[in-house]
Simulated scan of single mutants.
Amino acid sequence: MPNSTTVTEFLLTRFSDVWELRVLYAMLFLLIYLATLMGNLLIVTGITFNWKLHTPMYFFLKNLSVLDMCYISVTVPKACVIFLLNNTAISMAGCAAQIFFVLFFAMVELLLLTIMAHDRYVAICQPLHYPVIMNSRVCVQMTLVSVLSGLAYSGFHTGNTFQLRFCQSNVVHQFFCDIPSLLKLSCSDTLNNEILIFISAVVIAGSCFVFIIMSYILIFSTVLKFPTRGERGKAFSTCVPHILVVTVFVSSAVSVHVKPSSSSSPTFQDMLTSVFYSIVPPFLNPIIYSLRNKEIKEAIKRVMGRKLYSRKSIIT
């Protein structure tokens, strides 16, 4: 065998080497990160302290908001650091941890979005059976199954990736560690890894996407029968953005993970595609699912009002 050096750490890639552009990207990522944390934190607080919102729909919304805060925290802080500093290195353990948590949160996010589509289907198409089908026990069980499925999925693919040998270049052509980028750096046979990733991505993501689309087709067919135009418009304004975000999330994730490691494409294009499944959904979810909701807005106003009142009391 030819002489080779075993890789002990990886070097992540910036969007640009120009300092001004690096600062611009870092500021943009930081603003998106802070806005995502603030929006989701307000939603979690509003739902938690308003007992009227302790229903299955808002239970899943709160879980989604907590998940989004964790999901975006895996990639964006490290990306801001590599944009601004000259050190782009990440250890082997850090890279493995990043891959594990990205896969875990992405899988749980997809499953939660699927459950939420089912929840809306039952609420709109089977309203009389809704309290029985979507009782609190079932909601907790579905959430636990989603979490356990995410752990199994991420643990399997992370372990399967890091049993490979990395003895070529250690430059990861991505702003965070992901499996497709690492497979290109491996000097082992990665065919089995690529097949498993392709099958799991197509089967799991495809099944969830088809289930969500079918649920909303049934929802739309029911909504069209509503007597008033206002009720139909309200339902469509909630469902259509949901479908758009799910489509962007699933299509971008699948396009990155089912691409053969031997294929070559512009690095910037791959990195931009990754943004659409790792950063955009957590940023848009609060706007689409909650901040457009009248009850959520009222709950947030009450929480903010209480905080302002308590501050005035302390000052006086």
Rank of each mutant, 00 (worst) to 15 (best):
L144E: 10
L144S: 14
L144I: 15
L144H: 10
L144P: 01
V145G: 08
V145D: 02
V145S: 11
V145I: 15
V145T: 14
S146V: 12
S146K: 07
S146R: 02
V147D: 07
V147R: 05
V147C: 13
V147L: 15
L148W: 11
L148I: 15
L148T: 14
S149A: 15
S149V: 14
S149P: 00
G150F: 03
G150Q: 06
G150C: 11
L151A: 13
L151I: 14
L151Y: 12
A152Q: 07
A152R: 08
A152D: 09
A152L: 15
Y153V: 03
Y153M: 09
S154F: 00
S154I: 06
S154H: 03
S154Q: 00
S154G: 05
G155Q: 08
G155K: 11
G155I: 05
G155D: 03
G155A: 04
G155Y: 08
F156L: 13
F156W: 13
F156V: 13
F156G: 08
H157P: 04
H157Y: 09
H157T: 05
H157C: 05
H157V: 05
T158Q: 00
T158V: 00
T158E: 01
T158M: 07
G159Q: 06
G159M: 08
G159C: 10
G159W: 05
N160Q: 11
N160I: 02
N160M: 13
T161P: 04
F162A: 00
F162D: 07
F162M: 07
F162I: 07
Q163W: 13
Q163H: 14
L164M: 11
L164T: 06
R165H: 14
R165I: 14
R165D: 10
R165N: 14
R165Y: 10
R165P: 05
R165V: 15
R165F: 10
R165W: 00
R165G: 06
F166S: 01
F166Q: 00
F166I: 05
F166P: 02
F166E: 06
C167R: 11
C167N: 12
C167T: 11
C167H: 07
Q168R: 15
Q168P: 00
Q168G: 15
Q168Y: 03
Q168T: 14
S169Q: 12
S169I: 12
S169F: 09
S169A: 11
S169E: 12
S169L: 09
S169V: 08
N170G: 07
N170C: 12
N170F: 01
N170R: 11
N170W: 05
V171A: 09
V171W: 09
V171T: 12
V171S: 08
V171P: 06
V171M: 11
V171E: 11
V171Y: 09
V172T: 09
V172Y: 04
V172L: 14
V172G: 08
H173W: 03
H173R: 14
H173I: 07
H173C: 04
H173Y: 09
H173T: 11
Q174P: 00
Q174I: 00
Q174A: 15
F175M: 04
F175E: 00
F175K: 06
F175H: 06
F175C: 04
F175I: 01
F176Y: 12
F176L: 07
F176V: 03
F176N: 03
F176G: 04
C177G: 02
C177I: 05
C177D: 06
C177S: 06
D178A: 11
D178N: 15
D178E: 14
D178V: 03
I179A: 03
I179H: 03
I179R: 04
I179S: 01
I179E: 02
P180E: 01
P180W: 03
